[in-house]
Computed example of a mutant assay.
Amino acid sequence: MNNEIESYRKHRNLKISAAELGISWQTLYVRLKRQGEPVTGDKLRYGSDRDRLGAVAESEFKRIVPFAIDNNLLKFQHGYDFDVLGYKVDVKSSHKRCLNKKYAAKSWSFSFKKQSLVCDFMCCFCIDDDKSTKHVLLVPSEFFKGLQSVSVSCDGDSKWLDYEIIESELAEFFSSLPSQSPCKAA
């Protein structure tokens, strides 16, 4: 492995790696691409608050479903997060928040617009004020196709809570699905 790949894998940041190597980030990018090195970044270390929240949920999903293939390691902003035994799964996360300042009711909101026509499942992590996971929802594609967003009321009165799954049952669920041919990269 050469110094450029080694530096990029260590930092997962073009600017920092390029500075360490004494070259421009553009030069490093071109060299990495020529060598077939995926330029994916690291949302946990360098992303916005939303990126970090998403990355934490993706890490949690990978911990719970260890046989899931993380597509974000293969390509930056992949069309969906995981290939799980041939099923396309995107992981979403949301903090509680007030969507309407007129009312005090809080909810978790998830944007499905990009993945709603691609994925077989959306796995939504509802994050509580103390940063713990309050609910994990696993929604099959039949119920979200074409939806732009989903809002889940924090007061427990939401049809989306019908799709709650216990974390410990997530891997077992995917293992029990009928065999499906492996996903092709989006």
Score class of each variant (00 low, 15 high):
N3D: 15
E4Y: 14
E6C: 03
N13Q: 13
I16A: 09
A19E: 15
E20P: 04
E20Q: 15
S24Y: 12
Q26I: 05
T27L: 03
T27A: 14
Y29N: 12
R31L: 07
K33F: 04
K33I: 08
Q35S: 11
E37F: 11
V39H: 02
T40Y: 00
D42G: 06
L44K: 12
R45A: 15
R45H: 01
Y46T: 07
G47A: 04
G47S: 09
A55G: 12
A57V: 00
F61N: 11
K62P: 01
R63M: 09
I69R: 07
N71E: 11
N71Q: 06
N72R: 09
N72L: 08
L73D: 11
K75H: 06
F76G: 01
G79S: 10
F82G: 05
D83C: 02
D83G: 01
V84W: 05
V84F: 12
G86D: 02
Y87Q: 01
V89Y: 13
D90E: 15
K101T: 04
F110R: 03
S116G: 04
S116C: 12
L117S: 07
V118T: 10
D120N: 09
F121A: 08
F125E: 04
C126V: 08
D129L: 00
D129A: 05
D129R: 02
K131D: 10
K134S: 15
K134H: 13
S141H: 15
S141Y: 04
F144V: 05
G146M: 00
S151D: 14
D155I: 04
G156M: 11
D157L: 10
D157W: 03
W160N: 10
E164T: 15
I165Q: 08
I166N: 06
E167I: 01
E167H: 03
L170D: 04
F173I: 07
S179R: 00
S179Y: 07
Q180F: 05
P182Q: 07
P182D: 10
C183Q: 06
C183S: 14
A185H: 03
